[in-house]
Design a protein around this nucleic acid. Structure first.
Lengths: 200, 200
DNA sequence: TCCTATTACTCGTAAGTCACTCGTAAGTAA
DNA sequence: TTACTTACGAGTGACTTACGAGTAATAGGA
């Protein structure tokens, strides 16, 4: 994921990041200029355009003005999109690191997002394109909805631990319960916190 | 998106917050002026209008009154929950002002949230308890999913304007199209932006 | 070894655009 | 009247954007 930046550009980016951390706003061109001993605003502007081109920096869309116009990639309102999930298939990793915005209460280092591919979960009213917000953990409580891997096939089910083993119940009662046997390779990918569907 | 305030605006907001904490009432324009070393009421008013526009500040509803007309709002990551929606029934308003958190890019003064009641929209894979994020507006483009009111009955449908009138298509093609006739009282409550389902 | 081309970066300045400012005056409740 | 809110018009300068030209480092070719 290392983007192969030139050292100077990297330094420029690091400055913005640390500045934004210290004050909680992005620096102005002037502040960058002073902080980096650059002697011209044009140079600063050149960097911004350059970094914007690569996609590691964003300008404020609405604002485009004032102190807060540069925005560092992850603003802390997003979670990483780790892959595509389709019931009955292995997880399909997503190559270029993407993130999607979620309600801030879901922001947590152990949380991540999966995108649903296909209509395999339509019975649970999860459509193609929906986003699943997941808390990464290996155990679950009775009845929680989890991302489960059985023999490396992903699925979304309610988790129950019964005396004779793990049971995975579909949320839609019209479908069958999966009983995990001892021979099955089984693992919990995380607990499902929420579903987000974006129209348009 | 709309979060990033300019430092000055932030300072203005902070002042109101701390003033309200100290005296339990909102400051008058004059008090803000003195407290912030502003030399003109016009400036204060400018800030108020500005902050109101972004939706982080509210004026007293019955307007123009007493010292206490400014009201600070919550964290800015939430939208108001305006009511319960069930297909085929009038909107049911929710009495006590509630809010729910949404991804920040949905934060906008014209946006609001409805909670789905019952399984009337299950065919569109919207379950009981789901939250619908809506942008309030009276018109829609072809094919957008809208909150529509036909004869005061609410429903979620795709909107199409055809030569012979408005058509409302269910998202699920197995169901029938609603054709709005001239006698029908019809109104768009807003455009659906997203669905949020919280488990547990 | 020198020549040349390319890339990475630098400078300064001029033009444009809001963010924020002021003062004053009109309006509205107690 | 008093205390306060709303409205308008007109700055000003902090800040961004755009342009043109210049340097420094590297690589490749002859």
């Amino acid at each position: 994921m290392a983007k192969q930046l030139t050292p100077k550009k990297q330094r420029f980016l690091d400055f913005i990041r640390s500045f934004s951390g210290d004050h909680d706003r992005a620096p102005t061109f002037h502040e960058i200029m002073e902080g980096l001993k650059i002697k011209s605003l044009g140079t600063v502007n050149w960097y911004v355009k350059e970094l914007e081109k690569i996609g590691v920096l964003e300008r404020g869309k609405y604002n485009a003005k004032r102190a807060l116009s540069l925005l560092d990639q992850s603003t802390g309102n997003e979670l990483p999109l780790l892959g595509l999930i389709a019931a009955g298939y292995p997880l399909e990793a997503v190559e270029n690191r993407e993130t999607i915005e979620v309600p801030i209460s879901y922001i947590h280092p152990d949380n991540y997002v999966l995108k649903v591919k296909g209509d395999s979960m339509i019975d649970d009213h999860i459509e193609d394109g929906d986003y699943v917000i997941v808390r990464q953990k290996a155990e679950a409580s009775q009845g929680q909805t989890v991302v489960a891997f059985v023999n490396n096939e992903a699925t979304l089910k309610r988790y129950y631990l019964k005396p004779n083993g793990v049971e995975l119940h579909p949320r839609n009662p019209d479908y069958d319960v999966i009983r995990v046997s001892a021979e099955d390779e089984f693992r919990i990918g995380g607990v499902v916190l929420a579903i987000l569907r974006q129209y348009e």
